[in-house]
Each structure stands twice: as structure tokens, then as C-alpha cells.
Design a protein around this nucleic acid. Structure first.
Length: 829
DNA sequence: AGCACGCCGACT
DNA sequence: GTCGGCGTGCTC
């Protein structure tokens, strides 16, 4: 609180702030700044505001003005949370652009951009105002309860109070207490996340003497063999690494918490609690293992650098295992030498410790990592460090484009073709690759897109000289491309040489690999056990009650699951339609492949990698570690296995059924299939051995399969581009699709038709549809899709979007559209 | 997104 | 006669 005299010194301007609220609302709102906060009000800081009757939100100041809004009296902002902005001006500009480009609200962008710890109103701390005397008799029951609780416990969070009162709406009560000056509300970001402690074990120096150690060991072996094991493991681990963590020791030795505890009590071990960074690594870093670029890499690097003189974006098209990462590292080194920041984007799934470690060796403490497996405290930590310029390099997934960079000199987008760069579910439906190009431009920085199988959009831009194009056709270290063999499933079925889903060719190759102590990866583009349960008599198939999809049988739960809404039900033993007991599984997924293989090869160590087995925080890493440590012989997985796996001993890759990829009803199906198959194949026989890829298919003559065998990306590109052109698809046209949803199918049908006609009034035959998507009902909402195709180079897409926005807004004000959800998706995948 | 105001069914 | 269902409209 400022003294009266100080207030007088202030310039008593009346200030208003326009704030972005973390909500899906179409505009920003303006609040008044209390005089004493005038100086503290800065664009990019967070404020607490009341929005609506009772809700308090953390909002971001987007603009400050001295002019009062005309038509209403502005509410006051309640508090300014930050001493310095947490969002930069440039970010706000970026958010604004993103909302425009992807046709969503700034609030939705804010939600995607800010770690929730920076916007959680419910985690706000509440405490008593010590400087103020108040009369308890003046309080109502609930207010009294809160003050009583605060007498005992000086600090409560809003969610604590929710629990205390047993009701959800506590904000009005808190606000009234706040207004009566009884409580204060604060949110100190720096204290919001507590440093993580980790316990390290060290050996009592007495036992550095080998005689003492021997003596101890003999005693332990007799009396406490578990403890002896723990000691041995400790000695092994301490030889390998500088510090031994307690949890690691427990895991490695299998000794259990209690054994370690008694060793600590006996003063054999010392326990040391260290504060470590939540980001999972310590400061002490080994020296850098210096690599040298191959001639081809050197050449490619030089080309890229030359292009950067003239172009903002360069595509590095390098075959799998051509050593693109080393080129990235050189470019990063160069950029950080100039003092500018670098963002290295990777698909979520490729962000394994493998790549993180590799880069950490290079860049040590200046590299930050940011991805969705991080919890919020960790994300805030990275956010703050980027903001304070403590990180020069950030390695991250899609959402790291939202970090508060100051001076981004270079963005690398690895595996640029990856569809996971596009966010679909909550708006903003943004593509991190495209967004990165805009972001780099804002910083006058450069973008390097890397891929073995570039997206056609990118390749087109490169071929038409919008981007620089660097080709790297040689695999690093002279590793040969794998041998690809296509096997006809129908032929083997006729010959009766199939064993369950495996052709004799694949079986033989797997066996050979296993005999040589090598590893195998099997690729099946579908998770679950069997996609559907079907009645053999009446062909009945159980469907989800909320969605227009067949339920999938999952063996571990023995239930039928819906992959769209998570609905589960028990597997029926009789057909609910005709009463027949002849129910059978049709189709097959990763789980069934695993199951059948375990029957065919009972002694082989199998593992499965798909969405179901990698859901938890560390399970993916565990699978990868096991693979690396050769605890797995055969890994069966979905698309996940195609990404970022780089293991020396994987020599055979089996694609169980290529047709499931090829017959996808999507104009990108061929592009996708090629990418998929090329990526999967690229996993075979990297360091030093030629790998083998077996593609099982019903259609061995398929054009794309031929192109894969010949690794002929260019041929694929040219044939596909002809079709893209004639059928008005990207990259020649830009697509904006609009999903219309409603619980009632008839209303939806009429409204989608109406909206389509409205759009057609402006855009003519650029409007296609409405069409029912492949899955026309999800979570009880029926869906229709309207598609708009805009010529790439003629009418301004910016104008078109503005017009679309108007049409949609207009549509939503019509009474008939009640209950309709309209979701535009710009550049959909 | 929440929350209130508002108009139609099964209950003290 | 009310309690309460969620439909729709607004929030600076």
C-alpha cells in the first residue's frame, strides 16, 4: 500500500487495461486499474480479474489505454501478480496472429501457451491481512469458518477453501473478505513450485579400504544377503557414474527400501539429500565427444548456410540415418555463439532420453527441454529460464513454440512432415511447423526443416525456390540402406505357409535374427487386440453408445473399448442381436500380434509399444531402455516404433499388413504410407549392418510399395502432385474445413446445409459438402464437415478467413443454430 | 468456460 | 402448489 503523499506523486491518470482471459470467448475485455497500481500495470503481466458474477481468473494484460470504454463502467482489476511481464510483447503479437490464422480466440491460444501453473486461479494462496482489525461478529458463517482456518494455518489455497466449505463457488466469499480487507490474495510464482530433492548414496570412506570392505562383505553375505547385493550393486554403479541415486540403487539391486535403510543405519552408506533440477540432470558434465562431419554432411551444412543468406527457410532432405542431427548441432553451435536462442522442435514421441542426452553432452546446462510428459512445475521452470535468457537452446515438442523467447535466431523442425505437429483437439488447431516459420520471422530468425520424407507442402515450397533445398542422399558412416522384400499374403495363404499373421519369409527372417542375437521390430498400424467383435450368424458388431465406431476388444481388460470417448463395456458372450454364441474377432491389432507370436515363439522376449502401453509418464522410456539393454527380442508396435528408435541391433523390421495404411480414404494416404514405411524401414540395420525389411501385403504390385522398395521419393512426389493438382488439394490449394456438431442429427443436417449455403454465397464452388465424416458421431455429437478449398495464390486467404468468421458469427446468431458447435480447422491433417 | 435467468415435468 | 431439468445469453 502506498502512502497518500506517494499517491499524490503519481500521475493520477485513469488507466484501463485490455486483458486476455483464458477462455474460449471471442474478444478481450477492459478493466480499470486502481491508481496505486498504475505504475505496476505493464503489458504482459498477469492480473487477477473478476469475470462474470463470481469467477476470478488470471488474465494477461494485452494493452493499456487511458480512455474509458464508452458503454459501460469497467470493473477494477483485483491484483497484479507479477513484478515483471511473464509474456513478452512479441508473444502477444504471436498469439494474436495465431488466433487469426487458425480462426480461434486469443484465450484459447493463451490456454495452450501458458503452463497452467501460471494461470490457475484455484491455486492462489489466501492469507489473513495482519494489518487489519476486524469484527468477527460481522462475518457470516462461511466467512467465519475461513478466518478461523486461517488463524490455525496461515496460508490456504483456494482449492483448500473449496474443500473446507464443501462448495465450489468460493470466489464470491473470498472476494467479499478481500474487499473487507480481512484477507490478502497472493500468488508468488517463484514459490509455486518446490525444488525436487533426490537422495544420493555414498559409501562410508572407511570401506574405501579393500580389507574393510571385504570384511564387511563377508558379514553381510551371511547375515543379510540382500544388503550384500545392494553393496555390490552400489560398487558397480559407482564405477559407472559419479553419483548413485537411492531409487536407482533400489531398482538395480532389487534390494528394497529396508535393506538400504539398514545399511544407512549401520553407517555403511551415507544418504545425502540434494536439490536437483526438475529437468532431470545435474550440472557436472562430461567433456564433449567431438565428432567430425562426413564430407557429404559438411557439404550439406555449407549449402544450408549459404541458403540462409538469402532465404528464411531451408529444407534439409536427408535419407534416414544420413546424420541430420549432427548438422543441426553444428548450426545450433554457430547460432548460440552469436548469442541468439535456438529452438529445436521434435515430435513428442521422438523426444526420448536418447536425443536429449546427445544434445546435453553438447550444450550442457544451457539446453532446456519442454514436452507434455513434464508436469506443470517443470514447465514453469523452463518457461522462467527461457524468459530470463538462461537457456540458449530449447529442445521441445509442439507446444514449445509458445515459450517466451527473446531473440530466436534459429528454429530446427526435425521430422517436419510429422502429423503430430498439428494439434487437433482443443483449439488452437495449430501446426507447430508452420507456426515456427512465422515465429522465426518475427525474430528475424531462420528455420531449418529436416526430414527424410518431407511433406509435399514443404517439398513443393523447396522445389519452387521459396525455401532453400539441401539434399543429403548418403547414409552416415556408409551404412547401407536395408534390403526391402515384399511378400504377398494372398500367395502365402494359398500355399498355406502363413502361420497366423506371419508369412514364412518373415518367420524365417525373425528366426535368423534371433539366432544372431539381434532384435526385431514388428509394425502393426493399429492398437488393441482385435478391432471388432462380430457375430458370425448375423454380422452384428458392438458399437459405442456415444460414438459412431465399433468397439475394440482389449485383452488386458477383457472389455470392449471405444478409442474415441473411452467408453468401455463387458464383452458379450452371446450376440445381443440374434442370440447366437458364434462371436468371433475380426481384424487384429498389436495386442493380438503379440499374443499370437508368444504362442509361436514361446521363448522369445516380447514387448509391445502403443498408446496403451506408453500412457504413463515413464513407460515409454522403460520400453526403450529395455530394448537398448537387449531385454527385448521382438518389439511390436504402432506408428510409434517408426519414430526416433535408433538401436544398433535391430536388423529385421516386419510390416505385418501394409494394406491397412494404403487403403486409407484420404488424399494423403499414399504420402503417409510412403513416409510411414520409409521411416519404419529406416530403423533397420543402422550402425554397420545391413537391415532387412519385410513388407507383408495383399497387393504387392501397389505403386507406393514399389516406390518404397526403390526408395524413390521423387517419383512418389511427381505422381502424387499430378493428382493433388487435378483434385484441388494442397499444396496447390489451401484447405479450411469446418466441423459442425450437434446432438440432434436432424438439426445438424439442416444447420450444416444452411451454413454451407451461406458460405457458398461468398465462396461459390470453393465450398464442398457438407459431408458426414468417417466417424459421424463422437461423444454423442453428430458431425458434418464442410470443406473450403482456396487457390493458393489468388484471393487472399486472410480476407477469406475474415469473411468466414463473419459468416460463422452471423450463423451463430440465428436462432436456429442453437446448440450447434462450429469448429474451423485451418490446414487440417 | 461458468453461471444465472427462464420456462416445462414428478414430487413434499 | 414447488424443486429442478438444462436451454441460451452474457460476462468489461
Amino acid at each position: 500500500m502506498l502512502e497518500f503523499a506517494e499517491v499524490q506523486l503519481h500521475n493520477r491518470k485513469t488507466l484501463f487495461v485490455e486483458v486476455i482471459l483464458p477462455l474460449a470467448i471471442s474478444r478481450n475485455y477492459t478493466y480499470r486499474v486502481p491508481f496505486e497500481m498504475n505504475d505496476a500495470a505493464v503489458v504482459g503481466k498477469r492480473v487477477v480479474v473478476q469475470f462474470g458474477k463470481s469467477k476470478l481468473y488470471t488474465a494477461i494484460i494485452a494493452a493499456i489505454s487511458e480512455h474509458a470504454p464508452e458503454k459501460y463502467e469497467a470493473k477494477y482489476i483485483i491484483e497484479i501478480l507479477d513484478d515483471a511481464p511473464v509474456v513478452t510483447q512479441r508473444q502477444l503479437q504471436f498469439w494474436h496472429w495465431l488466433a487469426e490464422y487458425y480462426m480461434c480466440n486469443e484465450g484459447e491460444v493463451m490456454n495452450a501457451a501458458l503452463p497452467s501453473a501460471l494461470k490457475l486461479a484455484s491455486e492462489t494462496k489466501v492469507m489473513l491481512n495482519r494489518e487489519f482489525e476486524y469484527d468477527k461478529t460481522q462475518l457470516n458463517d462461511k466467512e467465519y469458518l475461513i478466518t478461523e482456518a486461517l488463524d490455525i494455518q496461515p496460508e490456504l489455497t483456494v482449492s483448500d477453501i473449496v474443500k473446507l466449505l464443501g462448495q465450489k463457488t468460493v470466489m464470491p466469499i473470498l472476494k467479499s473478505l478481500f474487499e473487507k480487507n480481512i484477507i490478502t490474495i497472493s500468488e508468488e510464482v517463484s514459490e509455486r513450485y518446490k525444488p525436487r530433492k533426490k537422495t544420493y548414496i555414498t559409501l562410508n570412506p572407511v570401506y574405501h579400504n579393500s580389507d574393510n570392505r571385504k570384511e564387511l562383505f563377508e558379514i553381510l553375505e551371511k547375515r543379510a544377503p540382500k544388503q550384500a547385493d545392494a553393496l555390490l550393486t552400489y560398487l558397480k554403479l559407482s564405477r559407472q557414474q559419479k553419483a548413485v541415486a537411492k531409487n536407482e540403487l533400489i531398482e538395480e539391486s532389487g534390494a528394497g527400501e529396508s535393506s538400504i535403510k539398514s545399511l544407512i543405519e549401520k553407517e555403511v552408506f551415507f544418504a545425502e539429500h540434494k536439490t536437483i533440477s526438475r529437468l532431470g540432470y545435474e550440472e557436472d558434465d562430461e567433456a564433449i565427444s567431438n565428432f567430425t562431419l562426413s564430407e557429404a554432411q559438411q557439404l550439406a551444412l555449407g549449402e544450408a548456410q549459404q541458403y540462409f543468406e538469402k532465404k528464411d527457410v531451408v529444407l534439409l532432405h536427408g535419407v534416414t540415418a544420413s546424420g541430420k542431427t549432427q548438422i543441426y548441432i553444428k548450426l545450433i553451435e554457430e547460432m548460440i555463439a552469436t548469442g541468439r536462442q535456438v529452438l529445436y522442435l521434435l515430435p513428442e514421441i521422438a523426444l526420448t532420453t536418447h536425443i536429449i542426452e546427445r544434445l546435453r553432452i553438447y550444450f550442457g546446462g544451457t539446453i532446456g527441454v519442454y514436452h507434455s510428459r513434464f508436469n506443470d512445475n517443470e514447465r514453469v521452470e523452463v518457461w522462467q529460464k527461457v524468459l530470463r535468457n538462461e537457456y540458449k537452446v530449447v529442445l521441445g515438442a509442439r507446444s514449445s513454440v509458445f515459450l517466451p523467447f527473446h531473440d530466436l535466431g534459429l528454429i530446427i523442425v526435425d521430422e517436419e512432415h510429422e502429423t503430430s505437429y498439428k494439434q487437433y483437439d482443443p483449439a488452437p488447431r495449430y501446426n507447430a511447423r508452420d507456426t515456427a516459420i512465422y515465429l522465426a520471422n518475427m525474430h528475424s530468425g531462420k528455420v531449418l526443416l529436416g526430414s527424410a520424407t518431407p511433406s509435399f507442402e514443404t517439398y513443393y515450397n523447396a522445389r519452387t525456390h521459396k525455401y532453400g533445398l539441401v539434399e543429403l542422399t548418403e547414409r552416415y558412416g556408409g551404412v547401407q540402406l536395408p534390403l526391402v522384400e515384399v511378400v504377398s499374403i494372398s500367395k502365402e495363404l494359398k500355399q498355406k505357409t502363413m502361420q497366423s499373421h506371419f508369412t514364412s519369409v518373415l518367420m524365417a527372417d525373425m528366426q535368423l535374427a534371433l539366432e544372431n542375437k539381434e532384435q526385431v521390430i514388428l509394425f502393426q498400424n493399429r492398437r488393441g487386440y482385435a478391432p471388432v467383435l462380430m457375430c458370425r450368424v448375423c454380422a452384428y458388431t458392438p458399437k459405442c453408445i456415444n460414438c459412431d465406431v465399433s468397439l475394440t476388444y482389449h485383452k488386458h481388460t477383457t472389455k470392449l473399448h471405444c478409442h474415441y470417448c473411452g467408453y468401455k463395456e463387458d464383452t458379450p458372450s452371446v450376440c445381443p442381436a440374434c442370440g447366437s454364441t458364434h462371436l468371433e474377432y475380426k481384424g487384429f491389432g498389436t495386442e493380438k500380434v503379440e499374443d499370437e507370436l508368444s504362442v509361436l515363439m514361446p521363448d522369445v522376449r516380447l514387448a509391445r509399444m502403443d498408446l496403451d502401453t506408453t500412457r504413463s509418464r515413464n513407460s515409454l522410456q522403460t520400453i526403450l531402455n529395455n530394448l537398448e539393454e537387449k531385454k527385448i527380442d521382438i518389439l511390436i508396435g504402432t506408428q510409434m516404433v517408426a519414430k526416433g528408435l535408433d538401436f544398433a541391433d535391430v536388423t529385421v523390421i516386419g510390416i505385418i499388413n501394409a494394406d491397412s495404411l494404403l487403403k486409407y480414404p484420404d488424399y494423403r494416404a499414399n504420402e503417409r504410407s510412403f513416409q510411414m514405411l520409409a521411416q519404419v524401414s529406416g530403423r533397420a540395420g543402422r550402425r554397420g549392418k545391413q537391415g532387412k525389411v519385410v513388407i507383408q501385403t495383399y497387393d504387392p504390385g501397389h505403386r507406393v510399395i514399389k516406390q518404397v522398395i526403390e526408395n524413390d521419393y521423387a517419383d512418389l512426389y511427381f505422381t502424387e502432385m499430378e493428382e493433388r493438382k487435378s483434385f484441388k488439394y494442397p499444396p496447390f490449394y489451401r484447405i479450411i474445413s469446418v466441423d459442425v456438431k450437434h446432438k440432434n442429427p436432424e438439426i445438424l443436417y439442416n444447420q450444416a446445409e444452411y451454413l454451407t449455403n451461406e458460405l457458398r454465397k461468398h465462396f461459390g464452388d470453393r465450398v464442398i459438402g457438407p459431408e458426414a465424416p468417417l466417424i459421424n458421431r463422437i461423444r454423442n455429437y453428430y458431425i458434418k464437415t464442410i470443406m473450403l478449398k482456396f487457390e493458393r495464390d489468388s484471393i487472399s486467404v486472410v480476407k477469406a478467413k475474415a469473411l468466414m468468421r463473419d459468416v460463422i458469427t452471423q450463423f451463430q446468431t440465428t436462432k436456429l443454430s442453437k446448440g450447434c458447435i462450429v469448429q474451423p480447422d485451418v490446414d487440417p491433417y
